[in-house]
Structure formats: structure tokens, C-alpha cells
Design a protein around this nucleic acid. Sequence first.
DNA 1: GTGAAAGCGCTAACAT
DNA 2: ATGTTAGCGCTTTCAC
Lengths: 337, 337
Amino acid sequence: MYKKKRSITIQDVAQTAGVSVSTVSRVLNGKVDVARETQDRINGVIEDLGYTSNLAARSMRSQKKNLIGLIMPDIAYPFAIEVMKGVNRAIAESEFDLLVYTTGDVRKSGRASAEQKYVSLLTHSISDGVIIVAPVVAEFNSDEPIVSIDPVMSNPSYPSIHATNYQGAIDAMEYLFSLGHKRIGYIGGRLELESANRRLLGYQDSLAKAGIPIDQELIKSGDYTTVSGITCARQLLEQSNRPTAIFASNDQSAMGVFQVAEEMGLRIPEDLSLIGFDNIPESKYLGLTTVDQFIFEMGYTATQMLIKLINDIPLDDQTYRMQTSLVIRSSCRKIGG
Amino acid sequence: MYKKKRSITIQDVAQTAGVSVSTVSRVLNGKVDVARETQDRINGVIEDLGYTSNLAARSMRSQKKNLIGLIMPDIAYPFAIEVMKGVNRAIAESEFDLLVYTTGDVRKSGRASAEQKYVSLLTHSISDGVIIVAPVVAEFNSDEPIVSIDPVMSNPSYPSIHATNYQGAIDAMEYLFSLGHKRIGYIGGRLELESANRRLLGYQDSLAKAGIPIDQELIKSGDYTTVSGITCARQLLEQSNRPTAIFASNDQSAMGVFQVAEEMGLRIPEDLSLIGFDNIPESKYLGLTTVDQFIFEMGYTATQMLIKLINDIPLDDQTYRMQTSLVIRSSCRKIGG
DNA sequence: GTGAAAGCGCTAACAT
DNA sequence: ATGTTAGCGCTTTCAC
């Protein structure tokens, strides 16, 4: 395991400075009751030796670490990146630093038991609190604050940020109605996810409210991948009475629609309105409308919540279980009249 | 600071299981010399109590943590994200997990002294090795392997991945030559950066090699922002004898060119070939050609290098200071004949 | 097979 | 103003 050239400890500093470890610890922690010249000498030695404190040892003893943990199974997909950006912003504005923990792959994470492991890993020491993304368990054994983003459970025991799945779908649909659309295709998926069900429900309820009968031919279900998005899009667009708009409930599905439309020579948004959930950076080049901004905001808000908890500021009920707000970024076209 | 409900320790487990801490530690670490039934009992208690070990305490004693650190000042800009994706992939394929450390903002990081702090923070304990992005110091005081990505120093004491700045510029230029371009504008910037100089040199050398005299009117320098890109692009495109192609040495500059072209009614790539360094996800929608793929690869390769070092596999000289390969993603147009 | 005890590097009383 | 000491939770000899 690599050449273990024992690293410089507080002991070494104390010894070469000719003082005790506690004195060194004092200057390290900015305590005032140390003689000016002793401070200078110690700081000099620290500089010379290139000493830096051992996080592990330190966090075992002290409380405040000024470090927040973020746990995600994978940091390479758009949702994760957007969350990280939000957290990053809140972190930048704070006194805290951030530690993102990932296994790089959902499959490696294993779920449930693994989740608890990751939480403890950061929580038990190291950090002042953690944010966990899309956790499956309802409760964590932790001695520190936890905030979750888009938990799978609808009623977890920890504070959580829930995507506005239902309202987002309603908003998207009403936006399409306002432009005159009546035949609106829906591409859903991953019905095991709470969020997927909420979106579908929003779609259905808004149709009901608008007095438009639900046409099962307009509801297709995939698995949130581009490939399945393509399949669903074909099924929708090859119908003789094809929809004038498609509501794709996630970004990958929307990409699928985009590809099929291109194949079929349909321009978006001129010939087909496409509205997607989630944030796709490319959307503005694609003529795609999105129900947007909320992923970033989820990360940002979660971080602020966590910092409040760390600083012992209680959350009110409304904040405790929070819905994010929505922005519709628009480029759909009016049709009909 | 939050209700410190003391967390469950190895002591608690030992006590309720009626054994000593060392026995618990043994089963925890999969040592074989523990009676079958004792193991089961202890595992039962661990399950019941929901015990998980304290990372800090553990890493103070043991060697292998199966954890790699990645240090970046900010995780919200395209370069950082691309690096993370690469690291993420390599991590996913390995037995290691990843800990990304960030302050969220370059300004908070401070540089130099701060860098050493972050390295030690992860290195001294916690992780088995770290990757540091764009470090300014040439040497780190660390007891563990370090690999750097795109270091500011050209000859750091640690293994490093250098962007193929010079060769990338040459490739880009030769690609443009092959399409018949002769008047090629250049937008550079940040001359304090090694990478910027290498790119400019590549531009100049390739012109020389092609026997095309260098026209200072075609070389503009900004600061790698979109705003300065716009200024430079105007200066280039408002010339009476304007260039048929522009080589923008970074992504933000390229965005600037794109905007100016739009203003002036120039289509890319039909009326103006635009080739950019670095990876812009949007480029494919913009008709932009890019010297590409290498950022992801930098992260990926760095991680593999680091894992080798951790496992005591020496790096050969060539690997020790590595250049990344390039891909030109093309959409430029042939001109002239 | 299991326990006792030492100690990793550090901080926080408690002394002086 | 500084040193002494007792642990934090864990792993690791070294006994039994």
C-alpha cells in the first residue's frame, strides 16, 4: 500500500516548537490565551513542517466540522448534476464545505442497508449533517441532521424536499390547454416510483377537470430511458389521429420524442408541442418546453434546510416537508383557433 | 448543535452481546478465528441496534478505506462536471467509493495554502488517495498517492494528466486546413495559464508549417468568458476580409462567437466554421466543431492512475505525465474549391 | 476462541 | 500562559 511515510502530527509540531501538544492545539483552534510569541513560533513550525491536522482524529473529538455531506448513488446523470449545482451554490454562500459521497453506480450502492452505511459513514464523524438523494428507507439511525431530496417514501421521518410532481403535471397540462391543445399524449414510466405516479395522476386529473375524456391510446409507459421514449413516441405519433402535443414525464423520454419527430420530419414546436418534466440543458436548442428549475432548487433548498438544522433553527411544518416551485420554460405553439 | 443522541458504538454492541470489543471488531473485519455462534450473535446485535462503524475512528487505525478523494474548488461548471463524470465511471468500475470535496467557490478556496489543507484533509485519514484538479502548488505534503488533473505547474512533483493543448490546437488547425480554410481567426485568453499558451503556440506553429503568414489581426485575446468572446468575435467578424473559420480556444469564447454570428446573420457552419476547444454539450445543436472528449477521459484516466498507485503498481514515465487523446467532433464545412 | 490493554492524533477539562 | 491527563471509537498485539 504505497510508502507510508508517517505524516506529521501535532506531536511533531509540539516537540520541535518545544511546547506541549495542548498548546499547539490551542493555537490551531484560535484560542486566545496563548502568548503572542509562542503563537508565532508554533505557526512558524507548522509552516516549516507543512503540518495539517488529521480530519479523522479531529472529528472524533470536536463538534463542529463545517462540513456537509451529500449522498448520491451516481453523480453522472442530469438530475444528480443539477442537484449538485444547487447544493454547490448554497455551500458557496455558507461557511460550510461539501463532501459528496458516491459509489458511482446505483447498482453498487445496493440500497437500503447500504444507504444506512453511507449515512453513518459521513454522519457519525466527518460531517455536521447530510443530504441524501432519493433514499428508499424511511428512517435513519443518525446522530446528526438529515435532509432528503425526493425520497421514495411519501412520509419519511426526516425532513424532505419533494418534487412537485403532481402540481407540475397539472401546470404543464394547463399550459397546453391554454394554447388550444386537446389531444395530448403522455409518456410515463417507472411506476414503482412515487414521483411517476404523481405525474400520471396530474395528467389524468387535469384532463378530467378540463372535461376531456381520457384516451388510453394517448398514454404510453416506458422506463425513463431514451430507447423506451422512442418506442412510446412512435406509438403516439404513428396514430392516424396523432396528438398535437406530447407531455414526456422525464427528460430521457423527451429526447426519444425529439428523435422520432426528427425522423418523421415533424418540427418541434411548429408541428408538435413537446413539454418535458425535469431539466434538460439542451431543451432550449430543441424547442422543448420544460417544467423546470426545480431540481437545482431542490438541492439549494435542502442545503439551506440542513444548515438551519445544524444551527439548531427549527423548521416549521411547512418547511419540514417541502414542495418545490415550478417554472415553465416555454416554446410551445398555439394551435387551432 | 442538534440533539446529540450519542450514537451506537462498538462498545454498545459488545456489551449487549456479552463479549469484548475486540471480539466485535474481529467479526466486523471478517477475521476467521471467532466461534460460529458468537459471530451470529454479534451480527444479530449489530442488526438490532443498527450499528455502523465510525469512519473517523476506524480510519485512524486501519489502512485500507476503499475511498478515493476528488478535490475541486467548484463542482458546478462544465469542466468540473465532465471531470466528475469520468471519475465517476472509473469509480463505478472499481471497488472504491468516491468522496468529492468542494468549497463551492474558487474564491472560498483561496488557493495554495488552502489546497494543501484540502489534500491533507482527505489524505491523512479518510481516503486512500486523492485526485486534485488544477492545483497551483508543485508539491504536496501527503502520505498517500496524489494524481493531478491539468495542473498549473508544467512540472509538478506528482503524477499528472495534462490536456493535449498543443496537439489539440494543431489537430484543430489541420482539420480546418483540410477543408480549405486559410484565414482562420483565433480567440485566446488567460495567458497566465500554461494551457492557454500551449494552445496559442499550436495555432501559430500549424500556420507556420502550412506556410501561411501569421496575421495579428486574426489573433484576439480575451479572458475565457462569453463576454470577452463576444468582443473578440466582433473584432474578427467586422473585418472587411473576415476569416472563414474561427478557432475559439475555450468553450465560453465559442459561445460568444456563436452569439455574434447570430446577430450578424451568419449561419454556423454554413457561413462560418467554428471550432472550439473543450467540451460543450450544446455544441452539437450549434453546428460547432469541437476538439473534444478529453475532459471526461482526464477524469477517467486520473482515477485509474490513482488506483494503480494505491495498489502499489508503479507508473511508467509515459503514464506518469500523461497527455490525453483527442476527438474532433465535426460539423465544419468545406470551402473554396 | 476470546479478553485486556495499548495507542492512533486530537481536544477539552483540569491543573499549575 | 502552559502542561498534564483523560478519553473519542476503533484495531491490533499479546496474553490467557
